[in-house]
Design a protein around this nucleic acid. Sequence first.
DNA 1: CTTGCCCACTCGTCCGCACAAGTCACCGAG
DNA 2: CTCGGTGACTTGTGCGGACGAGTGGGCAAG
Lengths: 238, 238
Amino acid sequence: MSMDFAPPKYAQVMTAIQQRIRDGEYAPGDMLPSETQLVREFGVGRTTVVRALQTLAMQGWIEREHGRGSFVKGRPESPAERVRPGLSTAEHPENAENIVSVARVPAPRHVAKLMGVDERTPVIARHRVIRQGDRVSAAETLWFPLEIALGTDLDKPAPLRHGVRQHLQAVKHLRIDHVTERLTARKPTKEEAELLGSSSPVLGVLATVHDPAGSVLLVLSVALPGDLHELEDVYQVS
Amino acid sequence: MSMDFAPPKYAQVMTAIQQRIRDGEYAPGDMLPSETQLVREFGVGRTTVVRALQTLAMQGWIEREHGRGSFVKGRPESPAERVRPGLSTAEHPENAENIVSVARVPAPRHVAKLMGVDERTPVIARHRVIRQGDRVSAAETLWFPLEIALGTDLDKPAPLRHGVRQHLQAVKHLRIDHVTERLTARKPTKEEAELLGSSSPVLGVLATVHDPAGSVLLVLSVALPGDLHELEDVYQVS
DNA sequence: CTTGCCCACTCGTCCGCACAAGTCACCGAG
DNA sequence: CTCGGTGACTTGTGCGGACGAGTGGGCAAG
């Protein structure tokens, strides 16, 4: 027995229409067949056709105008592919030559502010570098509240082979839910300049990494030399 | 007569549930009342309740598990609110003190490359500044291919009161469809430094603005002083 | 105790029908 | 010619009913 699963009918209708749009059979700006016609063509109820069309509209494939018809919008493409320096920093596996130093230090003002703690509260600072060939292509600092680092290897200078995100998940079941990034252009700090071997402008990324409840799991600060990095972003208008 | 419009019932159900999630009456992880219960509570058909719940699920408010129930996902927040320097530059209304100069010049190498034309092809360069109090907070250059600027006021130094996007739409029916931005940190050029009154690092935004067919309508280059600008971005993980 | 079945409950999908409301072409009255 | 009405066509919303399928607890047989 084959026991294949047929996808739901509304999905079949959606797929068929998407295919016709991709093939150019329905070109951008064209009016789609009316609901009634589609009902006849696919041999399904209007409910089903309407559900397919409304879903396609929500996904941006078509536009529906009350009283006029449904029209191909011609933009299959969807959300956006952004570079996320914050997230990739939290996921990057470490090895010995990435680690510069790991120490318990009083929180600097801007970090304390983002964590919502007092300025001199001790935190774990994990300094790392990313190498590209023989140049250092990024200088990163990850700041952890003590209670997060407690019981983990985050405060130890040994490299985390599976990255910070994995480690937090595996050891303390902490899940990263969302990240807030702040991007600016600045001069590197003295320490960064030394690591990078240059004091030309850097892209500064200051990110807070949150769990589902909104608590700050870590704060991270990345310095990306401007001559090595370009962050690209494509987005639809309106 | 008041003649108010009641929103559709499914939208009313959605709003009610969203409100309860925001109020914490339904906390993240909680199971929502079953469809049958909601049908009784709101006095509507199951079709309506299901539509509301499925829409909420698509928007990320809740999760639905076949055979188990609907559960609060606890992330009301949606796609992402990004600052779009490229788009806002194209939409910003101009006035006399924004315009620095407008000229026909040979395309610089990087602009020509992005437009897909030869390096010395003549283009229109429109230099502008944005002021914030008495400081210049951004130096912008908009590059237009001649055939785009033809018949428009883009090549005239008079300010465009409704912004470039509106002007293109109104005069030549050109619609902006998507924008590709490239962000980096760099030193300001001599001209930019002069306008900005400083040569400290700037965020450089180099964007191409496309019509629905993908043709480049304009290229724009913006210099944002690092000490004045911070681009913030929040995104969900996974 | 363990195993397996049954049943109540949940969501998933689909149908036919009904009415409201927006759009547009046509046509006749003025 | 212009104006307004009419009707065919479109999408928007809503209902009730039906069946399928996944989940989990209770219960009886082993």
